[in-house]
Design a protein around this nucleic acid. Structure first.
Lengths: 336, 336
DNA sequence: GCGGGGAATGTTATCGATCACATTCACCGT
DNA sequence: ACGGTGAATGTGATCGATAACATTCCCCGC
């Protein structure tokens, strides 16, 4: 009579608990109007049968899934990768699963196809980690009725965005160096088309100007240690350079190495501050003073914005800015 | 009469095309018994309405989702991160979405909870990226009726596993150094509890033994440049060291730096080979000879094993081994 | 003691697909 | 001309949950 080990459905639970399936549903959804005793009986039946609600059935009738789609660049960079895992963690805590769609480049068509795949899955919401302006165009591809949050995106896009306060972070780094007594601070930046880079450049420049310090020429690179090394080789040759702010820790590593090769000691001859606080930053030689971004906070903020949109709440906040903070180690000292 | 912009369902398409919903379903699933003319009409209706099949409804009736769950360690290491994006790509091509569940440590309870979340989502299959033996215990947590494939897992576990042939890769690296004329090769390994590390150690040792070369003591580290540097400082002090095989490129980077600081030139004084071929390896100084793992092939193999299990095919292959290959650059030369 | 009201529970329709099973249709051979 | 056959299409049940609505139950006040 009974099917061989079909996974139990709500009615099975109901039968065992001696109630109707609707009551089981109410217990599952924490409806108030269920007698405590019944609730306990139902819970017991659920446990006994090892019942799991069928998400597909639920999604079918409610019209929304428990899936959040993430669009991210196919990248092994520390920032994006951390972002993804932190978001997954936060979403899991809220009962959502995360479906990733990676893309090689953040251009319009790639994003469009990934977004399409996500919509196909009927995701409840979308998170786009969009560090460059070209990703903005992809906005048009996303229908208005799907909740969307951007991380690291263009604050001026009109869509909800969560960002780290790059300017504040860069400002803190720069100020830290100035306060140590350096007359000015050089900057090795990331790719200028990244919002992150732009913000850090802006924060650095503004802090120098406010302090009345001269603004040296900008050295811009990609995010790699290799380019940091290249920039470092230039800097090492110039005796007037005593303080460097690198846009990420890998760049800083490259600079560190170049300085070392030229016999310029850190921090005695040159002070340096990085950005990111990658796990190994504390093991650089010397341990690197750097700026930590609270990826976890960003992830949670993004999630809460997304959940807010799902509940069609009036968007209280459309742009959340998470402050980074300086992690002081041993790579900064007063000038000689 | 008509609801405001409810997303169209199969019956809407059917009505527009002048057929029954069942015919639409047949067109969607490429059933043979549909007249070409009808098929075209239906396709046109689908396009006109911008219809997307409701996955939830489909999943409900067929009992299987189009979701594959991936369990991976919360890591920003190059290998695991690459693996994930490559797998996502492959799965997308096959019409599957990928839900990630990351975990801080590969211990029993963490894995169990992530697996549980995935089962909750009724994933069609699971991929576990399990580089360490402790992950094995989590096997017990996974019910037998859900398809599972391990990547980098224990070949002896009895479950389908896809691995890179670490021994072959390590052998190639070691042989390359021996063939350049070095009398033996030192090895800086990764954590010994990783299967990957164990395989590389084994390949290195065996190749040396077969060549009748002496096997120097093993230097084991984690995967970081910091520990590579530490190992490098030891190696740099020993003039008899002329060839080093590092278990990954970051370790190699650390070794490189240590050697450089001690004035030992690469490759003139010491030759070195890495593993992974991270994007920046070609920009190391000197450009690093290394071993590239075909993550894409691994991902595709894992997917096909998984799809095979879903079709309940007799498991033709339970263990697929993907060969890596040596990428020769400038960090190896004959001994002085 | 009876009507009222809210809490607790049950009944039935519904979501949008697939599946199993009709049914219709066209064409063929005898 | 007629039955047979397979292709093309349609009909109704079904999956497992939630939602809307109906019903029962209990307690309270007058």
């Amino acid at each position: 009579m009974d099917k061989v080990s079909r996974s139990p459905a709500m009615t099975d639970v109901a039968r065992l608990a001696g109630v109707s399936h609707q009551t089981v549903s109410r217990v599952l959804n924490d409806h108030p109007n269920v007698k405590e005793q019944t609730r306990i009986r139902v819970r017991a039946a659920i446990a006994e049968l090892g019942y799991r609600p069928n998400r597909a059935a639920r999604a079918l009738v409610t019209g929304r899934s428990q899936l959040i789609g993430v669009v991210a660049r196919n990248s092994t960079l520390y920032g994006p990768a951390s972002m993804l895992t932190e978001f997954e963690q936060a979403a899991a805590d809220a009962g959502f699963a995360v479906s990733v769609g990676s893309v090689r480049e953040l251009d319009r068509s790639s994003i469009a196809s990934v977004v399409d795949r996500h919509l196909d899955q009927r995701v409840a919401g979308l998170v786009v980690i969009a560090q460059v302006a070209t990703a903005n165009e992809a906005l048009a591809e996303i229908p208005g009725d799907v909740p969307v949050v951007f991380i690291d995106g263009d604050p001026g896009s009109g869509r909800p965005v969560v960002t780290v306060d790059q300017e504040a972070g860069a400002g803190a780094a720069t100020r830290h160096l100035l306060e140590a007594g350096h007359s000015t601070v050089w900057h090795v930046s990331g790719p200028v088309d990244w919002f992150d880079s732009a913000g850090r450049i802006q924060g650095w420049r503004q802090t120098l100007q406010e302090a009345g310090a001269e603004v040296p020429p900008l050295l811009s690179a990609d995010w790699s240690a290799a380019e940091g090394y290249r920039a470092g080789q230039m800097l090492a040759r110039m005796p007037e350079v005593t303080a460097v702010f690198a846009a990420n820790d890998h760049l800083a590593l490259g600079v560190l190495r170049a300085l070392h090769e030229r016999g310029r000691r850190v921090p005695q001859d040159v002070s340096i501050v990085g950005f990111d606080d990658v796990p190994e930053a504390a093991f650089f030689i010397p341990p690197l003073t750097t700026v930590r971004q609270a990826f976890g906070d960003v992830a949670r903020a993004a999630l809460s914005l997304l959940l807010g949109q799902m509940r069609t709440e009036p968007d209280t906040a459309r742009h959340i800015v998470v402050p980074p903070h300086l992690v002081v180690r041993d790579s900064v000292a007063p000038p000689a």
